[in-house]
């Protein structure tokens, strides 16, 4: 938390950086549509949308590649924003939906819904994932963000880790009793953006959009909050309301991400740190940078997941864990948690 300013100092440089990031997102999305077991070139993509004639390649573009790229971008951006907000709220550089157990909570609720309530409609599952994410967040936040005495980052991390262990153990318990759902759910439990339909994205898109806009709106208030509750109150801000709003946005973004792609870890930790390196602590820049960098990182992870074990695909949640763990450990070793 030491570096206040990033490498990009003035607003012009930051603006140009933002533009470059946005360009990179577009390029990565194009790559994501292009590359895979079957390579699709841009003429096919264009053709699939202008003169759809039902050839295999056009179906691949419309049914798998394009939804997949869009979902990866949206989920990556949302996870990164929620990570940035959580790190600010809890003043814990290691906070993220994965580490604090929110993904595991949502996962448990989804397994319960699939296994006991036999719910399989995707929009219902999205709501259930929200519920799980919300419940877990409230518990972990309740420990971390409110009250007079703050939990140290370590304790918060431990609380999250134990919540994660709790929910994943219950999930496994349900799955051992119900072998059929195990088969259906295990792939979801790892986190993947593959094979999700476009309508699924449309179901959760409103929540994503509300979350993104909300995050940008409270960015300035987050800056004040970072100076401490006392200062925030002094300038006439109600810290509790800001915290609640930020918490709600985190739940909205993390919950919809889990609902659509399963628990994808580490994006929420890595990306805010990368963004801070670029633009420093200012949330008004941090939020958009996190969003774009998150989208880029998840798109790249998803693309590489296709090639690591050709022809089999590695779920992208595993790719992010493999990339993210060394990063997490570096932060832990550097002592940034103090």
């Amino acid at each position: 938390m030491s570096e206040v300013a990033g490498v990009l100092k003035n607003p012009v440089a930051k603006g140009i950086g933002l533009f470059l990031c946005a360009t990179l997102v577009i390029i990565c999305m194009y790559l994501s549509v292009w590359l895979g077991i079957t390579n699709v070139d841009w003429r096919d993509i264009l053709h699939a949308y202008t003169h759809f004639s039902g050839t295999n390649i056009e179906i691949i573009v419309r049914e798998t590649r394009v939804p997949r790229a869009l979902i990866a971008a949206a989920v990556g951006a949302s996870l990164a924003i929620s990570g940035a907000l959580m790190q600010g709220l809890t003043r814990n550089p290691l906070a993220s939906p994965g580490i604090l157990g929110i993904n595991a909570g949502a996962g448990f609720f989804i397994v319960i819904a699939l296994s006991f309530l036999h719910i399989s409609s995707m929009s219902a599952l999205a709501w259930i994932a929200f519920l799980g994410a919300a419940l877990t967040s409230v518990i972990v936040y309740g420990l971390g963000a409110f009250g007079t005495e703050r939990l140290t980052p370590v304790k918060l991390t431990l609380a999250g880790a134990s919540m994660a262990a709790f929910f994943s153990s219950l999930t496994q318990g349900v799955l051992t009793a119900d072998q059929q759902s195990l088969d259906a759910v295990i792939y979801w439990l790892v986190g993947s953006v593959q094979g999700r339909s476009f309508t699924l994205l449309l179901h959760v898109l409103p929540y994503f959009v509300i979350g993104w806009i909300g995050a940008l709106l409270i960015a300035a208030k987050m800056n004040t909050l970072a100076l401490g509750d006392a200062v925030a109150t002094g300038v006439g801000q109600n810290p509790l309301i800001v915290k609640m709003a930020a918490g709600l946005i985190v739940i909205l973004l993390a919950g919809s991400s889990v609902a659509i792609a399963g628990p994808i870890g580490f994006i929420g930790i890595i990306v805010p740190h990368m963004s801070k390196w670029f633009v420093g602590q200012d949330y008004r820049w941090l939020i958009p940078y996190s969003a774009l960098l998150g989208a880029i990182l998840l798109l790249l992870a998803d693309i590489s997941a296709r090639f690591v074990m050709m022809p089999q695909e590695v779920p992208v949640g595993i790719m992010t864990a493999v990339i993210g763990t060394p990063f997490f450990i570096t932060i832990a070793r550097k002592g940034g948690w103090r």
């Binding site: 290691l94 994965g98 580490i99 370590v154 991390t157 431990l158 880790a161 994943s168 295990i186 439990l189 790892v190 870890g265 580490f266 590695v314 779920p315 949640g317 595993i318 864990a321 493999v322 763990t325 997490f328 450990i329 832990a332 070793r333 002592g335 948690w337």
Partner: peptide, 20 residues
């Protein structure tokens, strides 16, 4: 503290690989 945090990180990695 570092021991515990690093443990958490390694545990997450091991979990992901197990699921893989």
């Amino acid at each position: 503290v570092r021991l515990v945090l690093i443990g958490t990180g390694i545990a997450a990695l091991a979990k992901a690989l197990t699921q893989f």
